[in-house]
């Protein structure tokens, strides 16, 4: 190959690369704008506060109140996070500070496989195990009657799916706490646990919160597994053993059937936009915090 063709090839490839970079950087904006464009119709039809806070959901009558879906999403996410928090924190501390290297080597594939299992499989597991368990045991224990398909089932399944995701970030964060700091606290007479409690957790507090922030945004958008166990009944749930209907499930269940009604179509696109905004905002705040913390070390 002579110099000219090499040079030309290089320039062509550079052009391609430049195009790629532009496209990728623009992609979130493209997605956001296309969703905004599609939800324009509904935004002109109803006010934002009506969309967000009204509980009346009658698509055929042109009334679109997203409140029941938002409440369901918030509850499912909240339950998922609450349940996953202790397991993630305790495991991350144990694997970083107490376990041997062999244990970590054994646990890493376990965590990876948990992370790799598709959400539809978690959904099947939820239907097989969690839903009946709630219907038969958990709900009666609290004095409720439930089919098992409920906010609680969605939360539990979600919490299991969140474990590998949050755990990996937490382990990363704990690793950035400097050994010197640990030594300093120990040599003042603190035990390992006291050091973790008073120094490590305090030092990495912002990082821990961010890890759960990322988990939250993950949980908020999880669709299929939750949809399969949550019941999908429109209405503001009164207790956790009642069925709910989170935003992603709403979109997934109605898409395709709504095409004939432009307003319904637009409403669902608005739901997708809402989902994206919430998720991206939490994502950005959490990532910024983590990046900031890492730059300090």
């Amino acid at each position: 190959m002579n110099y000219k063709t090499r040079k030309l090839k290089d320039q062509l490839v550079s052009l391609w690369i430049r195009f790629m970079v532009l496209l990728v950087v623009a992609l979130p904006l493209i997605i956001a704008f296309s969703l905004l464009y599609k939800s324009w119709l509904i935004l002109g039809h109803s006010s934002l506060s009506e969309l967000l806070f009204s509980s009346v959901w009658r698509p055929l009558a042109g009334e679109f109140g997203f409140f029941p879906f938002i409440v369901s999403s918030v509850w499912v996410t909240f339950i998922g996070l609450i349940l996953t928090t202790p397991i993630c924190l305790f495991s991350a501390i144990f694997l970083t500070y107490y376990g041997s290297r062999h244990l970590l080597r054994f646990m890493q594939p376990v965590i990876d496989i948990l992370a790799g299992i598709p959400s539809v499989i978690y959904g099947v597991w939820g239907i097989l195990v969690i839903v009946p368990a709630i219907g038969k045991y958990l709900a009666p224990m609290f004095g409720y009657e439930s089919s098992g398909f409920s906010i609680m089932a969605g939360g539990i399944v979600l919490s299991v799916m969140l474990i590998p995701f949050i755990l990996n970030i937490l382990i990363e964060i704990f690793r950035t706490v400097h050994q010197d700091l640990f030594d300093a606290s120990l040599s003042l007479g603190a035990s390992k646990w006291q050091t973790i409690k008073h120094v490590v957790l305090r030092k990495s507090f912002a990082g821990i919160v961010s890890a759960f922030g990322l988990g939250l945004s993950r949980a908020f958008g999880e669709t299929i597994a939750v949809l399969m166990v949550v019941g999908n009944v429109v209405g503001v749930p009164e207790n956790l053993f009642q069925p709910g209907y989170p935003l992603p499930a709403l979109i997934a269940n109605n898409y395709g059937e709504m095409l004939s009604i432009p307003m319904f179509d637009s409403a669902l696109m608005f739901a997708a936009l809402l989902l994206m905004v919430v998720v991206v905002v939490f994502n950005i705040i959490s990532r910024r915090t983590i990046i900031y913390l890492e730059s300090k070390h």
Partner: peptide, 20 residues
């Protein structure tokens, strides 16, 4: 062992102030 460690103060290469 924490009591033994309290008998010895440690000063390391870089100052390690606790986050408080």
């Amino acid at each position: 062992i924490t009591l033994v460690r309290q008998k010895m103060g440690l000063l390391s290469q870089r100052p390690t102030t606790l986050p408080m």
